[in-house]
Each structure stands twice: as structure tokens, then as C-alpha cells.
């Protein structure tokens, strides 16, 4: 989308205002990848006549996020056009679900659970340590753009808490779980991320 064009009504929606400040805006999408197209073709017949377009809204949004890293107004327009939905509907869906990033996250997305099972085992100490070391608040990205830190709700690994999950921008499909975290283990994880790698040896 060229910068000089006036914004459409949807693009003026508060959820998408931040888009202008997002680094990497030049990557604004032109089209969905052939992989997404193939997946649409594969899934389309699994839904009843006339329902597939809407039913595919979640899967395609997620795949588009894998392709572009986040979902902004331009991605919404692409998804809506491909599935025959209104941009309003797709925006409604995209803003409802927690896993859709409205802005581009860091290279690594570190998600720390602080819910009850993890809280009892010291998750807030782990989370505070992450905040301090990265110099960010919840949902913030470190100054070098390397790590985005998010406090998340239960990851269904309560017996092995505190638990964190790391998603890597280049490999969004396989986030790793890191269990039984304490100061030492989270330090090792943060060190590895700073070196530019996910410490798979610590995960499972």
C-alpha cells in the first residue's frame, strides 16, 4: 500500500493504527504464498457448500501470520479477498484471538506462563527476571528487536512448571516448550537467544 494513499475506514480502526510505526512495513504483503493456496484447496472440500470460505478464516489467518509474521490491515484485506469475506469479519476474528500478532514480534517470541500451576512454582520470579534482563514490560520487544516477551495463560503443562514456549520467526510452526524453569535455566535460555539460537537442548 503506497504511503500517499488515504487510509480506508478499516485501516483507521484503532487496532491497526500501530501499523504505521511497525518496522518492516515495506514487507506489506502482495499475495498469499502458494503453500497457503495449496492448503486452502486441500481444506475447502472438508466444509459444507457455501461455508468453507468463512470456516477457513482461522487457518488462513494463522498461515498468513506465518508468512508475514503478523496480521495487519493489508493482510486482513488479502485474506478477506481470497475467502470472499468482508474485511470487517476478518478484522473481528483477527482481533479476538490471542495468537494473532497485530504487530511484528521480535525474532524470538518468548511466552512465559504465569497461571496457577506455574505461579505456585515461582513463575513470577522467572517472568520478572525476563523483564529485567530484556529491559521490557509484558508484550514488549527488546531494543535490538531480538526477543518479544509475553505473559501467557495456561499452556497445559502445569505439572512441569514454570513453563515457557519459544516461537522463532523463521520457524513459526514448531515452538518448543521449556519446563521446570528457575533462575539458572531461564538465564541459559536468555543467553542462547541473545546469541541468536533457540536452546533446543533445554527444551522438550
Amino acid at each position: 500500500m503506497a504511503g500517499s494513499e488515504p487510509l480506508t475506514k478499516m485501516q483507521r480502526h484503532p487496532s491497526f493504527r500501530a501499523r504505521k510505526a511497525v518496522p518492516g512495513k515495506e514487507l506489506s504483503p502482495q499475495e498469499l504464498s502458494p503453500q497457503i493456496e495449496a492448503r486452502i484447496q486441500q481444506l475447502w472440500p472438508r466444509f459444507p457448500e457455501g461455508r468453507a470460505g468463512q470456516a477457513l478464516c482461522l487457518p488462513v489467518l494463522y498461515l498468513a501470520q506465518e508468512q508475514f509474521g503478523y496480521v495487519d490491515a493489508a493482510v486482513v484485506d488479502l485474506v478477506a479477498a481470497r475467502l470472499g469475506l468482508t474485511a470487517a469479519h476478518v478484522t473481528g476474528v483477527a482481533t479476538f484471538y490471542f495468537m494473532i500478532n497485530k504487530a511484528r514480534p521480535g525474532r524470538y517470541h518468548l511466552q512465559v506462563c504465569t497461571n496457577i500451576g506455574c505461579q505456585l512454582m515461582g513463575a513470577y520470579d522467572v517472568f520478572e527476571r525476563c523483564k529485567k534482563r530484556l529491559g521490557v514490560e509484558n508484550k514488549g520487544t527488546s531494543a535490538d528487536g531480538n526477543v518479544t516477551l509475553t505473559e501467557v495463560e495456561c499452556l497445559a503443562a502445569c505439572g512441569y512448571g514454570p513453563v515457557a514456549q519459544i516461537a522463532e520467526r523463521e520457524k513459526p510452526e514448531i515452538p518448543l516448550y521449556f519446563e521446570n524453569l528457575d533462575a539458572k535455566r531461564i538465564d541459559a535460555i536468555l543467553d542462547a537467544l541473545a546469541e541468536g539460537r533457540v536452546p533446543t537442548e533445554l527444551g522438550n
Binding site: A55, L58, F96, F98, M99
Partner: peptide, 18 residues
Amino acid sequence: LGAYICGEETALLSSLEG
């Protein structure tokens, strides 16, 4: 896509419908 409420069966259906 990350919503606890979708474990509630009618919310799940709304979500599955897209």
C-alpha cells in the same frame, strides 16, 4: 488461535465456523 473460551462447546462451534 488462543482463546480459553473456545473450550466451551458452543464457543468452539462458533470458532470452527470461522
